[in-house]
Structure formats: structure tokens, C-alpha cells
Design a protein around this nucleic acid. Structure first.
Lengths: 338, 338
DNA sequence: ACTCACAGTCGAAGCGCTTCGACAACCTAT
DNA sequence: ATAGGTTGTCGAAGCGCTTCGACTGTGAGT
């Protein structure tokens, strides 16, 4: 293993000079700089991460806490994680992957040990038990998702309330009056995950304002669960002509079931998805949808964090505006056939 | 920030004693140990990761390189990543998330800087450019996936060749003679990703041995691509009664299309999937499938790696035996209706 | 009573880096 | 020519931990 000292000797300068070449924190003459860089290349030198962390009390690592559950909104999580990792690299940071398993202890461990300089939390619950810890430390952090109380915190998320409203508006504009919401699995609501409830708020509020009737049903993904849920909805409110689906694994089952029952999409029934674009475009009917901007969220989160680490940036809530893309699954409500 | 020295002082012992309490590398009297542990708790001490890494030349971090592409077999990757992270924690390791983006440089950087003690590589190509680097370093590593030449490497993977064979055998047993394989996207084969080719080998070999006819068609996921592929297959070989699908995002489209064309599953046509159980059970027809044991792979990989780090363990290729679960999508071939 | 082994503890020497203050050499303004 | 500032470099002091060798006291063996 090559050390700073060896590079220094090879280049005929002192260790500190090499260090300054590397960090650029003091000016170095062109000649010296080149000699040092040459030596670094020749010797294949890589600074030792531990030593660096110890001396500078900066690890250049960002911790990312992802949820342990692998059953929900997985592609979104993955895309965020990858966006976080690649964006972090462009700022010179690496990413440490923590699973929710350890819970708040992970926060303590990482903060206390100086393993990471900052952290990003995903899958934030409205009343997340990790929040007090974050508020009580001076380690920068960013949440992806919105808790109930955002004071003293930096958050990045899609504006799910606006997303709900947007879906309703789109259906209203097309003349639909009775709409049903296929939600995430009941467990998601029970955990009080913010995004699900905020979407619902937006849906309810706007549909009230527009005088529409709204039915909300949580739904486990999959064909069987969807079949049961759909039957219940159509039983309770046969006049339903618009669906909003916020559950990736319910999209295709819903479309299949509607088809099977002879309800044509979009002629008889319109469907709006809240899901990644990939899901929307690969469905059997190209789905009108509000996309989950996973990459953008990951990127934003890192950039907020880096800003904080650089002493710039403050606590703020960044809500990304939803965008609805009309595809083939929504159309005018059918003429009233009471 | 609390340091070892402060804990030592608080407990009235020397720093080295505290260190030995922590590491257990020398015997410590019960009384002293308890006093130290008490102090640690009272002061909320966490050892500094950087200092530890520097002094011991061990970071207790495992690097995990995941593919950059977010478009393919995502849930599997995610599940593996999570299994790696949680298993690593049980052995006292944290996980650093690297994306394929940097390519071989990432290997150099991590190895050279001592950022991680070992690494796990996913999405290994048959002739992966990172392999020479791995062979040339003494840093332990494990591949998830199988390259062409495994000499000097430790690999963990599902036995995809046996998987292919198993699928064929199942269909053969049910009396099918003409089978079609819906493969991964063409890009996967072009990249020479091992698993896809090995599956194909297994499929071809066994179907030859059993005197069956086999058609293989790569397929981008999604409904439209699947429609085109299916049409071509049925056009070329109308007598096809068995399908093997190795592409998560083609499963549901295939089932929908078959249904739409009046081909009943499993009465007219049988379908076997190679996919995570979750996909198989959530499909519109509960899919007979060989599951991808993502968790098991991640766990195995970490355990191999930890064994190496402990000086136990050697280079070996661990192939996990495939298991086929019969569900509702396969049945006897229809009577010959030439 | 005397050695020997061993458990239990301590002090000190680093691990490889960053960073601060010092200093020499040079330039510019007086 | 001189004071004052700049620029480029160096030496040394840590950062918080691990680990080695050394030391002390105790109990067993003779």
C-alpha cells in the first residue's frame, strides 16, 4: 500500500505539500504540482480513507436508509437509491446502505461513529421515531418523504396532495362524477406513511370542491386481491367510471379485470395511475399517469445535503410538482346511461 | 464527541483496557469490564470509525456494486441488495453502495483506499472487465453471477442451466413437444450476461435430449413488445403449447395476450416462469415457476465473503439448485389436434 | 519459601493523513 | 534600499484507535 509519505519522497517534497496538491487548500507551484501528480500516477497512490476521515473528521460518506420491506414500491426505491449513489459520486461522496432494520439505532450508530457525514432517510412515516434524533444532532440530513412535523428538517418529496388533486381534476375535466381510488396495501396506511395519506387528502379535497363522489379502497397488490376490491367497489357504486390507482402491483390486474368484465378502457371506464413512467408505458393499456420522479427525488436529496455540508443551504421542504401525462387509459365519461 | 480516552478516564482505567473490553482480544476481569461498559453507556460512547479503520486497517465495510440500469430485473437486484445489507450487519459489517457507473475504476478506488474490506459484484458479464482487477488484488470478493472463467474467483448464483433443464422437464412430463422461450431483452444477450445464456443452454440441451422443439425469442418487456413476439412465435410454430418466460415484465402481458386470443391457460397452453415468487403469485394466473432466490443469493454471498475475511473459506462456485413450484399455469398438453 | 505461569492491566508507539504556524524567497510600493 | 505583502514549502502536532511488550500480583506446583 502506497502512502502519502512515499509519494512525497518520490516527488522530492514534503508530505504536507502532497496533501495540499491533493486538496488544493494552499497554492502550489505548477512545477511542484506536476511532479507530485506524476509520482501519484506512477506509484498508483490512493489516499487511505480511514486516515483521511480521522484527520479531517469527514468521511465523505452519505448514509442512505432504505426500508426493509421488499414488497412495496420497490422500483421506485431502487431508482432513488441509484440516483442517490450516482449523484453523490459526482460530489465526491460514497453511499452507505442502511436498512430500516436497526431503526433509530442505526442513526445513533452512524452519527456517533462518524461513519457518515450526513444521511438520507427514505420511507418516512408521519410520526417517525428517527426524527427526534435527527433534530438533536448537528449532522445534516434530508428526508425523502414528508413527516407530520417538518420543523427543523429538510425534506424532498413529490407533492402528493397536488398529485391527488391533479388526478381528480383530470377525471373531472373528462366528465367523470363517480371515481374510485385503488390505494396501497392497508399496511401502508396503518403505518401512516405520509405519501399515501397526503394523496388521499388531495383526492378527497379536490373531489369535494368539484362535487364528485369518491370511494377509497386500500388494496394489496396482485390479481386476487384486486378482483375482490373491484367487485366491492362496483357493488357499492356501480356508477363508477373513473379509477385512480396508487399501487403498482394493482395496475395490470385492474386492467385485466376490467377487460374481462367487458368494460372497455377508456370508452367505458377511465384509469389514472400514480406510478413510475415505466409501469405506465408497459401496461396493457398505456396508462394516463402522474409519474413518481424517483431520480429527481434522489438527486434533489443529495444536492440539498451537499449544500448543507458546504455550509450553504438551509432547512426547507422541497415539493416536486406533479405532472400528469395523458395516455390511452382516460377518455370522456360515457354518456349517462342511468 | 466522546472518545476512548474519556471513557477510560471515567471508568478509571487506561485506554488500552477499554479497547480490550471492546474487542475482547485480551481477558479482562469481570469487575473492570462492567465498570467500563457502564461508562460507555453513561457517556454514550461510539468508537470512531475512521480511527478504528486507520489503526486496524479494517473498515468493516463491504462494497456492493450494483448495475446502473434500472430497467431490468429490478426487484431481484433490490432484494439481493437488502439481503446483503442485513446479512452484513449481523456480521458487523456495513455496506457501501457502488453503481456500475465508474466501472473498473470503482474497484481500484475502493481497493486502494481501504474504504472497504471486501466487495460483492452483481450483474457480472461473461467476460467482465473488472475480473482481472479482482484476481490481481488480495482483497476478498464474491461475484453474484457467473463469468466465463471462474478460476481464482468465488461466485454465487442460481444454477441457471439446471433451471432451464428443469423447466423443459416439467413441460415434457406434461406431454408438451413444442415450446417457446420468451427471453430477456436483446440487450441482455448482447451484453453476454451469464445467466441468460446459461438458462438458454440448459433449455436447449435438455429439450434436445428429450426430443422437443424449442424456439427462443428475446423480448423487451411490456405489452406491445410481447404482442409482436407472441405473434411471431405462433406464426412460425403454431403447434407451440408450452412457454417458458424469463422476463418479469413479459409475464403479465403474455398471460393477457393468450387470454385475449382465446387460448386458455393451462388447458390449451402452459406457461412456466423464471422469476421471483412474488411475480409468480401475483400474476393473473398463478404461475408455475422456478423462483429466483434473491435473498438466499445475497446471504450466501456475504457469508462466503465473511468466511474469507476470517481466513476461512476459499474460492468456490456455489450454485443454488433451482426449485420449480407448480401452480395454476401448467397442465397436460392438449390432445393432438393436428 | 520459591519459582513459574498466567490473568489483568498499563504505557507508548504508531496507523496515514490534515492542518497550523513558521519561514524563506520573491515581488511590489515607497 | 526597506518595509510589507504574497507565494510556495516544510515540520510537527495531532486525529482516536489498536496492539505490542512490559509489568504486577496471584495461585499452583514443588
Amino acid at each position: 500500500m502506497v502512502t502519502l509519505a512515499e509519494v512525497a519522497q518520490h516527488a522530492g517534497v514534503s508530505a504536507s505539500t502532497v496533501s495540499y496538491v491533493l486538496s488544493g487548500k494552499r497554492s502550489i507551484s505548477g512545477a511542484t504540482r506536476q511532479r507530485v501528480e506524476q509520482s501519484i500516477r506512477e506509484l498508483g497512490y490512493h489516499p487511505n480513507a480511514g486516515a483521511r476521515a480521522l484527520a479531517s473528521s469527514k468521511s465523505n460518506i452519505i448514509a442512505l436508509m432504505i426500508p426493509l420491506r421488499t414488497d412495496m414500491y420497490v422500483p421506485v426505491m431502487m431508482e432513488i437509491a441509484i440516483a442517490v449513489a450516482t449523484t453523490a459520486r459526482t460530489h465526491g461522496y460514497d453511499v452507505l446502505l442502511l436498512t430500516g432494520e436497526e431503526g433509530p439505532d442505526a442513526v445513533r450508530r452512524v452519527t456517533g461513529s462518524g461513519l457518515a457525514d450526513a444521511m438520507i432517510l427514505m420511507d418516512v412515516q408521519l410520526d417517525d421515531e428517527r426524527l427526534p434524533l435527527l433534530r438533536g444532532t448537528d449532522q445534516p440530513s434530508v428526508l425523502i418523504g414528508l413527516p407530520a412535523d417538518t420543523s427543523g428538517l429538510t425534506c424532498v418529496d413529490l407533492d402528493f396532495k397536488a398529485t391527488g388533486a391533479l388526478c381528480v381534476e383530470h377525471l373531472a375535466m373528462l366528465g367523470h362524477r363517480d371515481i374510485a381510488v385503488i390505494g396501497e396495501a392497508p399496511a401502508v396506511y396503518e403505518r401512516h406513511t405520509g405519501f399515501a395519506e397526503r394523496t388521499l387528502d388531495g383526492l378527497r379535497l379536490r373531489s369535494q370542491e368539484l362535487g364528485m363522489r369518491l370511494l377509497h379502497r386500500p388494496c394489496e397488490g396482485g390479481y386476487d386481491a384486486m378482483a375482490v376490491t373491484l367487485a366491492r367497489i362496483l357493488d357499492e357504486r356501480p356508477s363508477t367510471t373513473g379509477f385512480v390507482v396508487q399501487n403498482e402491483s394493482a395496475v395490470e390486474p385492474l386492467l385485466a379485470l376490467l377487460r374481462q368484465q367487458g368494460r372497455a378502457v377508456p370508452e367505458d371506464v377511465s384509469v389514472v395511475g400514480i406510478c413510475p413512467d415505466q409501469v405506465a408505458t408497459q401496461a396493457s393499456v398505456r396508462l394516463t399517469s402522474v409519474s413518481i420522479p424517483a431520480q429527481e427525488m434522489g438527486r434533489h436529496a443529495v444536492e440539498q445535503l451537499v449544500a448543507k455540508l458546504d455550509g450553504r443551504g438551509s432547512n426547507e421542504v422541497v415539493l416536486i410538482a406533479p405532472e400528469l401525462t395523458q395516455r390511452a387509459s382516460t377518455g370522456p365519461a360515457p354518456a349517462n346511461t342511468n
